[in-house]
Structure formats: C-alpha cells, structure tokens
Computed example of a mutant assay.
Amino acid sequence: MSQENIALETANMSGFREVLGFAIEEWGPGYAVITAPVQPRHLNRNGLVHGGVFASLLDSAAGLCGTYCTVPGNVRRCITISMSTQFVNAVKEGFLRVESRMVSRGRKIFFADVSITCEGKVIATGQFSLKYVSGGEDDEGVSL
C-alpha cells in the first residue's frame, strides 16, 4: 500500500465523493477500506442513514479495490455494470467502515464483495461487477 497513492486519490475528493465524506484508510491491489462518519446530511426523514448513502459507499469501495495503481500519479478507472445490495441493519449515528475485496478479475471486468459495518455490526453488503475504462485494465494505469 502506498501512502502516496492514498494522498493523490484523497486530493481528488470532489463532487459526490465530498458529499459522502469518506476517507480512504487502506488501499492496495485487490482491496480497499474507506470510512465515513454518519452526518446529518446522510439521514432520511426517519432519522436513519439513507439507503442511497450505503449503496454509494459500497459502490465507491468496490471501484477502489480494483483500481489500485502501481505507478503513483497515474490513475485507473472503472464503471459499475451491476450491483446487488443487501441492507441488513439501520443506523442513525456512528462511524461507518466499508471493506472491499476483489473476488475475480478478467481482462476488462472484475468482481468485488463489499461490506459496511458500524461499531462491529454488519449494516449492508454488496456484490459488484465493474468494467475497466480508459486504460484501467493496466496495473500501471494512465497519466492524468
């Protein structure tokens, strides 16, 4: 795991990623861990974290686990082509931990399993199929 890669990716936390408010804690070939504190903007009208927040965090971690780049400064990109999510428990406060692992990889497509926990309790899980784009299939990535 390269701290330089995490720092470069963290610097790219704009748009919707900024709304989610997650931090990359661990990142390496085939895995990623992101964390996010539950924030008031994440809650639905029932005072619980909206399922869309969980789905987006699952999706973000899934993409990261397959796009670690061996060349700092280069990037690898992918798009989600299929996702299946299971919401297991509700949360209204706390700190979310999202862990993703690559299950299998082909030349253009990879598969990931992801889970969200909050204080040791499983909150949501997901299974993903993702497709590399713009040279993402190359471990060395492409320059920006």
Rank of each mutant, 00 (worst) to 15 (best):
P40H: 01
T10V: 06
G135V: 07
V98T: 15
T85L: 03
A11C: 07
S100I: 12
L58F: 02
I81D: 00
L48Y: 08
Y31H: 15
A7D: 13
E140I: 00
Q127I: 07
V133Q: 06
W27H: 15
S104E: 12
I116G: 06
N12Q: 15
T80K: 01
A112T: 15
L144Q: 14
N46V: 05
G141F: 00
A32C: 15
E119G: 12
F128T: 09
T70K: 04
A62N: 12
F110C: 07
G73F: 03
R41F: 03
M83S: 14
Y132E: 09
G47N: 01
N74R: 08
S115Y: 04
R101P: 13
K108R: 14
G141W: 03
S129I: 02
S60K: 09
V88W: 02
H50S: 10
S129R: 09
K108D: 11
I81C: 01
F54Q: 07
E4S: 11
K121T: 14
S82G: 13
A32P: 14
A11S: 13
S143M: 08
T35P: 05
Y68H: 13
D139I: 08
K121S: 11
V88C: 10
F16H: 14
A112H: 03
S143L: 10
D138Y: 03
T67G: 04
P37K: 13
N12V: 10
G66H: 05
F87Q: 02
K92R: 14
L96R: 04
V98K: 11
S115F: 09
S56Y: 06
P40F: 03
T125C: 11
N44H: 07
C65D: 07
V103Y: 00
F16V: 11
M1Y: 07
E4M: 10
G94N: 00
A11P: 06
A112V: 14
S56D: 08
V88K: 14
N46R: 14
A32D: 08
V53G: 00
L144G: 14
G51Q: 05
D113M: 04
E137R: 02
L20S: 11
E137M: 03
V98W: 06
S14A: 15
G21F: 07
L144N: 12
L64N: 12
G51K: 05
I81L: 11
G28T: 10
S100A: 15
G47C: 10
A36R: 10
Q127D: 10
R77L: 12
L8P: 04
G136L: 06
V88F: 06
V133F: 06
G120D: 06
R101Q: 13
V133L: 06
A55W: 00
E140H: 09
V133G: 08
R76N: 07
L8S: 11
G47I: 03
V98A: 09
R97G: 00
F54M: 09
P29K: 15
L96T: 08
S115D: 13
S143A: 15
G106K: 06
L8F: 12
Q39H: 04
C78R: 00
R77A: 11
F128G: 12
E4R: 13
F110K: 04
V91Y: 03
A23F: 01
Q39V: 00
G30K: 13
S129V: 05
V53E: 01
T117L: 03
R41L: 12
R45H: 14
S100H: 10
S82Y: 01
A23Y: 02
L43M: 05
C118M: 07
A124I: 07
G73C: 04
M102C: 13
V114N: 08
A55G: 08
Q39C: 01
Q39Y: 01
C118S: 13
L57D: 09
K108P: 01
